[in-house]
């Protein structure tokens, strides 16, 4: 076996449940810090992003109407699949610059985070919804509904855990999403797409792009059919997003979290950040 030539993976992107390369035909070179791994990663264009939004929009209503129980089980299934492939992720995280110990910890934390949010699927509604004691003769209640299509700009460090920590609360709440992976550490994100694809996540609910932040962040912020934006970035990117998001009143949530392994980097408020409150009235009477 020692003379065997290994088969290398072409890293693609993940749109609408399929794995195409970028429509632009462009790529950027990933080189591991130790130089033992290179890959030609898709340099996504704004057209790729728009295609991904179309897929996310189409998938969102059905995903939102899936039962909370069902969404929880699918989140749990992602955790199962990730656990089963942990050695591959550890290897990729090491290529992306982690030590073995760091890589093991990051994969474990990512799996645990998925399980954590799987458990929230049928509970956050009870935490945040309300029956409102109005003074008139009406039954009045407020519930959470997903905001819709969410753009996610991942943190550059802890690429896998950052992606999982942002994606899980957003999709468990019934949103669909388009994710821009870490530009410097894109490999594990694409391999994670393979995990999603084998976890009963409906096509289009999660779409993952690789590319350059400088090129794509503005597109994420401007797109009129994206309802909300989760951004991990510097102050300039955050300001850019807030300004460019105005035209369709996109909800922009900027997270300034350096260590996604901490317990404060999870919680039901990451879910409610991408929910709308809907209040319904009905008269009481005969």
């Amino acid at each position: 076996m020692e003379n065997r030539i290994s088969v290398q993976k072409t890293y693609k992107i993940y749109v609408d449940g399929k794995f195409p390369r970028t429509e632009s035909g462009r790529f950027f070179e990933f080189k591991s810090p130790k130089g033992n791994m290179t890959a030609n990663v898709s340099l996504c264009s704004r057209k790729d992003f728009r295609d991904a939004v179309v897929a996310a929009r189409a998938a969102q209503p059905k995903w939102a109407s899936a039962s909370a129980y069902n969404r929880g089980q699918i989140l749990y299934r992602i955790a199962e699949m990730l656990e089963g492939r942990r050695s591959q992720f550890v290897e990729e995280l090491i290529w992306e610059g982690s030590s073995e110990v760091q890589a093991q910890a990051e994969v474990s934390a990512s799996i645990d985070r998925l399980v954590y949010y799987a458990g929230w699927s049928d509970k956050y509604q009870q935490i945040f919804s309300a029956v409102n004691p109005v003074a008139s003769s009406h039954f009045n209640f407020s519930v959470l509904e997903p905001t819709g299509v969410v753009g996610i700009i991942c943190p550059e460090s802890t690429a896998l855990l950052g992606l999982v920590s942002l994606m899980a609360p957003i999709i468990v709440g019934g949103n669909s999403c388009v994710i821009l992976s870490s530009s410097s550490k894109p490999l594990s994100s694409i391999t994670f797409a393979e995990v999603l694809e084998t976890s009963d996540v409906p096509a289009g609910v999660v779409n993952i792009l690789t590319g350059m932040r400088a090129e794509l962040v503005k597109q994420f912020a401007q797109h009129m059919d994206v309802n909300a934006l989760a951004i991990c970035g510097d102050e300039n990117e955050k300001s850019l997003c807030e300004v460019e998001a105005v035209e369709n009143l996109k909800r922009v949530r900027a997270y300034d979290i350096q260590d996604w392994a901490l317990s404060l980097a999870q919680g039901p408020y990451f879910i409610s950040d991408f929910q709308e409150i809907k209040t319904t009235w009905h008269p009481i009477g005969i």
Binding site: N132, V134, S136, H138, G148, P283
Partner: peptide, 18 residues
């Protein structure tokens, strides 16, 4: 897709109601 829905009523408001 709206924040307040009135069924068989309309334009009702209350401080307890978001």
């Amino acid at each position: 897709r709206a924040g307040v829905l009135w069924a068989n009523t309309y334009n009702k408001f209350d401080p307890t109601s978001p």
